[in-house]
Simulated assay, not measured.
Amino acid sequence: MTQSHDTPHSDVERALRGASLRVTAPRVATLEAVGRHPHADTETIIRAVREHVPTVSHQAVYDSLHALTEADLVRRIQPHGLVARYESRVGDNHHHLVCRSCDLIVDVACVHGEAPCMAPADPHGFAIDEAELIFWGLCPDCQAQASLPGPPAS
């Protein structure tokens, strides 16, 4: 029985080969996990990978995330005070909204489009090609939770 070339794995395998990476089970499972769990931390990705490759080691997933990030197939973000997160949305100029209460991270399109969308007053001779912008606040669920009356004072 031949495998269809239109399986979800085939897109991932093509992406890996296109980035000159060897196609391995941990890399395929890791790239798929990042796609299924946007803005996930490493532990979440490891659990998701183990659903498909139960014997995979932590180190194999860490190595896969590093290789995928270096190949620009995955983007690593780390908002201040949070652990690193990974997303498969690469190649565009987008930013993030982060909830100060629950740590939810949401993609937000850049209104300016091309990178860099901001410029410093004095670039000090740097050739700037990217600006990272993170908006902080409370997500709608946390806003609703904050507006609920608390227990009566005793």
Score class of each variant (00 low, 15 high):
residue 1 M to I: 08
residue 3 Q to N: 13
residue 4 S to P: 04
residue 4 S to G: 09
residue 8 P to W: 15
residue 8 P to L: 15
residue 9 H to C: 03
residue 9 H to T: 07
residue 11 D to K: 15
residue 13 E to H: 09
residue 15 A to C: 11
residue 16 L to F: 05
residue 17 R to D: 10
residue 17 R to T: 12
residue 18 G to A: 09
residue 18 G to T: 08
residue 19 A to T: 03
residue 19 A to K: 02
residue 20 S to Q: 01
residue 20 S to K: 00
residue 20 S to T: 00
residue 21 L to Q: 02
residue 21 L to P: 03
residue 22 R to G: 02
residue 23 V to W: 12
residue 24 T to S: 13
residue 25 A to L: 08
residue 26 P to K: 04
residue 26 P to E: 06
residue 26 P to R: 05
residue 28 V to E: 11
residue 30 T to E: 00
residue 30 T to Q: 00
residue 32 E to H: 15
residue 33 A to M: 07
residue 34 V to G: 07
residue 34 V to H: 02
residue 35 G to H: 01
residue 36 R to M: 05
residue 37 H to G: 05
residue 38 P to Y: 02
residue 39 H to R: 10
residue 39 H to S: 07
residue 40 A to D: 11
residue 40 A to T: 09
residue 40 A to L: 10
residue 41 D to Q: 12
residue 42 T to I: 12
residue 42 T to W: 12
residue 45 I to L: 14
residue 45 I to Q: 09
residue 46 I to R: 04
residue 46 I to C: 07
residue 50 R to K: 11
residue 51 E to V: 15
residue 52 H to M: 10
residue 52 H to L: 11
residue 54 P to R: 08
residue 55 T to H: 10
residue 58 H to P: 13
residue 59 Q to N: 14
residue 59 Q to K: 15
residue 59 Q to P: 09
residue 60 A to H: 06
residue 61 V to R: 09
residue 61 V to S: 08
residue 62 Y to V: 09
residue 62 Y to H: 12
residue 64 S to W: 01
residue 66 H to C: 12
residue 66 H to T: 14
residue 66 H to E: 14
residue 67 A to C: 05
residue 67 A to Y: 02
residue 69 T to M: 03
residue 70 E to F: 00
residue 70 E to M: 03
residue 72 D to P: 11
residue 73 L to P: 03
residue 73 L to V: 05
residue 73 L to I: 05
residue 73 L to E: 00
residue 74 V to I: 07
residue 75 R to W: 12
residue 76 R to W: 11
residue 78 Q to T: 09
residue 79 P to Q: 05
residue 81 G to K: 08
residue 81 G to W: 07
residue 83 V to I: 03
residue 85 R to P: 03
residue 87 E to V: 15
residue 87 E to Y: 11
residue 89 R to I: 14
residue 91 G to I: 10
residue 92 D to G: 11
residue 93 N to T: 07
residue 95 H to W: 02
residue 95 H to N: 05
residue 96 H to G: 06
residue 99 C to Y: 05
residue 100 R to M: 08
residue 103 D to M: 01
residue 105 I to M: 09
residue 106 V to T: 10
residue 106 V to F: 03
residue 108 V to S: 10
residue 110 C to W: 00
residue 110 C to G: 00
residue 111 V to A: 14
residue 112 H to W: 13
residue 113 G to V: 02
residue 114 E to S: 12
residue 114 E to W: 09
residue 116 P to I: 08
residue 119 A to S: 03
residue 121 A to T: 06
residue 122 D to M: 01
residue 123 P to Y: 02
residue 126 F to P: 02
residue 127 A to C: 08
residue 128 I to H: 02
residue 128 I to P: 05
residue 129 D to L: 14
residue 130 E to G: 01
residue 130 E to T: 01
residue 135 F to R: 06
residue 135 F to C: 05
residue 135 F to K: 03
residue 136 W to C: 00
residue 136 W to K: 01
residue 137 G to Y: 10
residue 138 L to I: 11
residue 139 C to Q: 13
residue 141 D to I: 10
residue 143 Q to T: 14
residue 143 Q to R: 14
residue 143 Q to C: 11
residue 143 Q to S: 13
residue 144 A to V: 00
residue 144 A to Q: 04
residue 146 A to K: 01
residue 147 S to H: 09
residue 148 L to H: 07
residue 148 L to M: 08
residue 149 P to H: 10
residue 149 P to A: 14
residue 150 G to C: 06
residue 151 P to Q: 15
residue 153 A to W: 15
